[in-house]
């Protein structure tokens, strides 16, 4: 193995349009460079070959986090650390805060962008799992058009996204949370700074003690992050009674398709989906003051 990167061409577009044109013109041969945390490590390890990098770091107007009536808006260059320190995120989108806060390296959070984290398309992403539970939308720009798509549809497989040639992600929109929203994020790791063996994010809307709406997102247990829809069904409309929670946890474990790798085993992961889903819902119950 080598200690240096391979030589490549370097582009530094000044606008999103310019970036998108470069991506269109060069196609597979180039990659977007955001924080570089993931991309450069992979280039050094020769896991990917690139002929050029399109560095978006100096495109103005992509580094922001703000909340308005449409929800929480995050730019493509907004770092994890900026989000972690943002009052809006901490106070109003606790689920996202908890996921980011669970990433321990300050260095990674200073450099790494949330969008970059999502674009790696690893099923282990804490950020992606929490944003899936929050029903985030990806804002995408192409050479001639812009579109947006639910994060839920953004992943096609391991390290594969729905981005078309020439497209890049310009931001994330997290819709406003309805009244009575609660969330819980949980993960299991080998040591504190490791990426997750399993992670779970649950967001539920509770009204008069009843579960009106719920989204359960799971990571590291399938080729992409996934929603546990059957588990959600088991909770929707209940008062989160113990039996319903246990039933949901069981269903979640049945819905996943984990593998054995260096971090954990398939068997353990499946079992932990059950434990974490149950614990996450229980945590929401405690926070919401739901009894039983």
């Amino acid at each position: 193995m080598v200690r240096v990167l391979t030589p490549f061409e370097y582009f530094e577009p000044k606008t999103v349009e310019e970036a998108s044109n470069l991506l269109r013109d060069y196609g597979e041969k180039v990659r977007v460079l955001a924080g570089g945390v993931d991309l450069l490590a992979r280039i050094r390890r020769r896991e990917i070959q690139v002929e050029g990098l399109v560095c978006i770091q100096r495109i103005p107007g992509l580094d922001y986090v703000r909340q308005d009536s449409e929800g929480l808006k995050i730019g493509a260059l907004t770092t994890l650390r900026t989000l972690e320190r943002s009052q809006e995120v901490r106070e109003n989108y606790r689920l996202l805060f908890d996921a980011i806060h669970s990433i321990h390296s300050i260095q990674v959070k200073n450099m790494g962008t949330a969008v970059g984290n999502l674009c790696i398309a690893t099923p282990a992403s804490d950020v992606a799992v929490s944003l899936l539970a929050l029903d985030a939308q990806m804002k995408i720009a192409g050479p001639s058009s812009e579109r947006s798509m639910p994060l839920e549809n953004f992943y096609l497989g391991v390290k594969r996204t729905a981005l078309q040639p020439g497209e890049l992600v310009t931001g994330i929109l997290v819709p406003p949370l309805p009244k009575g929203s609660f969330g819980a994020f949980m993960k299991l790791v080998r040591t504190a700074t490791d990426i997750a063996k399993v992670n779970v994010a649950v967001r539920a809307t509770l009204r008069n003690g009843g579960c009106e709406e719920v989204r359960i997102a799971l990571g590291s247990v399938a080729p992409t992050i996934v929603r546990a829809r059957k588990a959600e069904e088991a909770l929707r409309g209940t008062r989160l009674e113990r039996e319903a929670v246990v039933e949901a946890a069981e269903r979640a474990a049945e819905e996943v398709n984990p593998i054995t790798d260096i971090r954990s085993t398939a068997e353990y992961r499946r079992e932990m989906v059950k434990v974490l889903t149950r614990r996450a819902v229980e945590k929401i119950k405690v926070e919401a003051g739901v009894k039983g």
Partner: peptide
């Protein structure tokens, strides 16, 4: 002023 990983930072950036 912020801790960065110099091994994953291109000097040019």
């Amino acid at each position: 002023g912020k801790p960065f990983l110099s091994c994953l930072t291109l000097a040019i950036t």
